[in-house]
């Protein structure tokens, strides 16, 4: 654990009566927000949609070779936070982001940072599988092609193959790479989207409820895949399923009404939550 950790942990005590009186509003994050080998370091992130503040003073690290799960009731700001990490919020009108988000030490909201290469480094997998209405091959090849990652057709072919293999889809589609990606099943489409994301060799992969549109079998396959991908990437995943968070993540962050309430080792958060709100949520009392 870094020396920074002790400085950042602001509030390790139980929730105060005053907090509860203010409608459960919490004054700081409980638990260790740092990761041993952080790819992304977020400090004091605030997001507004117009006049409405969506997330408030969130600090969290996304560590290498681990999965951070973000859980919380609907509208708690977990997806908003995730979308800040590759500046997808830029496309939303009236969205403002304050605070510091650094990728390998570089401030990503710096005026000089171009979101285009940033998104090549921080890939994203969306809630609903969204393959391009093109062939399976083209879906995976699109990213490398626009970024000029390969020099020849053979290299590109190899990259497509590796990406599809890493996404665990190669054996199912190798005979029909020229067929439309939209013709695959939902789970296969989501794995195609993952292959498309890893084809540009990102450092961080963001996943926004990647299994919410899938059946349990497809979900299990994706979860297994996420666990394998951890070997090469830093992964942040937003999920509504607490079982999923427990299964795939090493760290869990609980969001509530725009605040990051509690962060910790997944085991600890689920077995021994320190904040009353976290406990209420994971025991199913609300949410």
């Amino acid at each position: 654990m870094s020396t920074l950790a002790s400085e950042i942990i602001r509030n390790t005590g139980a929730i105060s009566a005053a907090d509860l009186a203010r409608g459960g509003r919490v004054s700081g994050t409980i638990g260790d927000i740092t990761a041993p080998d952080p790819r992304m370091v977020c400090r004091g992130v605030n997001v507004w949609y117009g006049a409405k503040q969506a997330i408030r003073d969130v600090s969290l690290d996304i560590g290498k070779n681990q999965v951070v799960a973000m859980i919380g009731p609907s509208g708690c700001g977990k997806s908003t936070f995730l979308r800040c990490l590759n500046r997808m919020n830029d496309t939303i009108d009236g969205c403002r982001v304050g605070g510091s988000i650094r990728l390998d030490g570089q401030e990503i909201y710096d005026k000089r940072v171009d979101p285009v290469p940033l998104r090549a480094q921080v890939g994203m997998v969306f809630q609903k599988p969204n393959p391009f209405p093109k062939s399976i091959y083209e879906n995976v090849a699109y990213g490398p092609r626009i970024h000029g990652l390969t020099n020849s057709k053979a290299e590109l072919d190899a990259l497509v193959e590796t990406s599809l293999k890493k996404a665990g889809l190669w054996n199912e589609v190798k005979e029909r790479l020229d067929q439309p990606g939209t013709g695959l099943s939902g789970g296969q489409q989501q794995r195609l989207c993952i292959a498309r994301t890893i084809a540009v060799s990102p450092e961080v992969i963001l996943m926004d409820e990647p299994c919410s549109a899938l059946d349990p079998i497809a979900t299990a396959i994706i979860e297994e895949l996420i666990d394998e991908l951890r070997e090469h990437y830093a992964i942040a995943i937003v999920t509504h399923s607490m079982q999923q968070a427990a299964r795939v993540s090493q760290r869990t962050a609980y969001f509530h009404l725009g605040d990051l309430v509690e962060v910790g080792e997944t085991n600890q958060v689920f077995t021994n939550p320190r904040h009353q709100l976290t406990e209420d949520y994971i025991t199913g009392r609300f949410g």
Binding site: P117, M124, V125, N130, T197
Partner: peptide
């Protein structure tokens, strides 16, 4: 055109113009 297509293209690092013209 569904917004998910724009997100998909932006998500792999296509520029806004590429997103529009390619997808």
């Amino acid at each position: 055109v569904p917004p998910s297509i724009r997100e998909a293209a932006l998500g792999v690092g296509a520029s806004p113009l590429q997103t529009q013209f390619h997808h």
